[in-house]
Design a protein around this nucleic acid. Structure first.
Length: 273
DNA sequence: AAAGACTCCAACCGCGCAGCG
DNA sequence: CCGCTGCGCGGTTGGAGTCTT
């Protein structure tokens, strides 16, 4: 029967977002919270489709986003997580506060992939390339089932260390109470892992991943009251703090109406769960 | 200084899934 | 149970910026 387009193609603007559009979107979300995305463009006065708005918000406008290149530690964690989860960028992103799946995906494709290849590691399987060549296509190895990279030596040489433990060791771990910053609605049910074997595996991975070290600091500048303005400015959110300019007086995140300056602070501190 | 090559990332596209009536 | 709707995810692309010749 054919799927309906997510939005009317006609009259919907595409391409790069303007500052004005950003302001409108942020203004709307700060006023109304994240409601149904389909309605957002109309209500916010944007000629965009809801999907585009959601993407713009989650990947770029969210105040709690950490910007700039991934740190070495984050990169290492991404490699580690990718070895376990494969291209499940959203799951990987869920483990890196302030990072988006898109950002991680991009970073993987542009930096980490090359790095791994240079190190002689197949980025898809995390196995040494020469070994990979040996049993080419013998197994269409699913990322979830691949073994750990055997080349810890290589990793160590380049400063990349994989610290792992087997999933079995962690099956008893309690699932993380993952309070994602962008997604209170949580349409992806956390119970799904109980039904779906793959999701169960992923879930087990998540439990396991809780044991991975987290030595890099949470983007304190994003959660730090004193530094919020400067970091927001650094992040290109200087205008966000000129909220008065676009008429935001009160916020409604679905709980109380509170003064916006207080709430932006709380918001920036990640106090949204 | 100019042109071509390359890199990077924001944004788009299409699919799958969950929820609801 | 079925169809519809909305959301989220992963893959891909276009173009701006940077580097190289």
């Amino acid at each position: 029967m054919g799927r309906q387009p997510c939005c009317d193609k006609l009259g919907v603007k595409k391409g790069p977002w303007t500052t004005e559009e950003d302001k409108k979107l942020v203004n709307f979300i700060l006023n109304n919270g994240q409601c149904c995305w389909r309605a957002v463009p109309k209500l916010a006065g944007l000629l965009r489709c809801g999907k585009s708005c959601r993407l713009r918000w989650t990947n770029y406008l969210r105040p709690d986003l950490k910007r700039g290149l991934l740190t070495e530690d984050e990169e290492q964690l991404v490699i580690d997580l990718h070895a376990r989860l494969g291209n499940r960028w959203s799951k990987i992103a869920g483990r890196l506060p302030g990072r988006t799946d898109n950002e991680i995906k991009n970073h993987w494709n542009t930096h980490i992939k090359k790095k791994l290849i240079k190190m002689g590691i197949n980025p898809a399987t995390h196995e040494p390339l020469n070994k990979q060549e040996a049993d080419t296509l013998k197994t269409a190895a699913s990322p979830l089932t691949v073994s750990q990279p055997e080349s810890e030596d290589t990793m160590a040489k380049t400063g990349l260390v994989v610290h792992t433990s087997s999933p079995e060791e962690n099956l008893s771990s309690t699932p993380p109470e993952n309070c994602t910053s962008s997604n209170e609605s949580g349409s992806t049910s956390d119970n799904s892992h109980e039904e779906d074997p793959i999701m169960r595996l992923a879930w087990d991975d998540e439990a396991l991943l809780d044991s991975l070290s987290w030595d890099f600091p949470v983007p304190e500048q994003s959660y730090n009251n004193a530094g919020e303005a400067s970091s927001a400015v650094e992040n290109g959110f200087g205008w966000l703090f000129e909220y008065q300019d676009f008429g935001v007086e009160e916020l409604d995140f679905g709980f109380d109406h509170v003064a916006i300056d207080m709430d932006i602070n709380r918001y920036l501190m990640g106090d949204k769960c």
